[in-house]
Design a binder for these strands. Structure first.
Length: 183
DNA sequence: CGAAGGATCGTCT
DNA sequence: GACGATCCTTCGT
């Protein structure tokens, strides 16, 4: 399997969000490997996107969205959850990231069930905070390079089927933009 | 089934 | 000092 190169992420954030569907997210803990097919994503951009963390200005937390593409942006929310994003943008904007909202578990399901404390396959990784919990992704992974074969990376997956677009979840502004994508 | 509320803390104002 | 790119349980119909 080929790992997606930097070039993949050097495009319009919305395009990258769409193209990440069907790709395979791999998480290695020591020798143990967990993986799944990405089924839902959301694009967050910059000045044109009031729902984005990067909309107002650069801060300690969001600064990574202004940097190199293909890097993980992990943030903590609601006092108990982590969300996993990939920095992606073209030259026209200076910040952008794609939120990974759901995957279809393939390898390492047993460990994911253990991490989540439930066995129901449906509810294992079908939400942004659920998949970080299942894959043991935390703040420690803030800033790691997803184009290198390390703890977390993304590689080629399956053919894209039909993509459904809709409004992004849980935001107040920018609802008109249909930047939520799923298979 | 759906609606409501609790958990819980880093980040920005 | 307020609140969130959420999830899960509980309660009511």
């Amino acid at each position: 399997m080929t790992i997606l190169p930097k070039k993949f992420y050097q495009r319009d954030t919305v395009i990258v969000a769409k193209n990440l569907l069907g790709k395979k997210l791999v998480r290695r803990v020591g020798n143990y490997e967990m993986s799944g097919i990405i089924t839902e994503t959301e694009a967050y951009r910059h000045k044109d996107d009031p729902a984005s963390h990067a909309f107002k200005k650069i801060t300690d937390r969001n600064s990574i969205m202004f940097g190199e593409v293909g890097i993980a942006y992990v943030y903590f929310t609601y006092g108990m959850h982590y969300c996993f994003n990939v920095v992606a943008k073209n030259d026209k904007i200076s910040a952008g990231a794609v939120l990974i909202r759901g995957i279809n578990p393939e390898k390492g399901i047993k460990r994911m069930q253990l991490n989540r404390g439930r066995n129901n396959l449906e509810n294992l990784t079908n939400g942004p905070a659920k998949l970080t919990q299942a894959l043991e992704i935390t703040k420690e992974h803030y800033g790691i390079d997803l184009t290198k074969k390390s703890q977390i990376y993304i590689e080629e997956g399956i053919e894209n089927k039909k993509i459904k677009k809709s409004s992004r979840i849980g935001i107040k502004e920018g609802k008109k933009m249909l930047w939520n994508f799923k298979i």
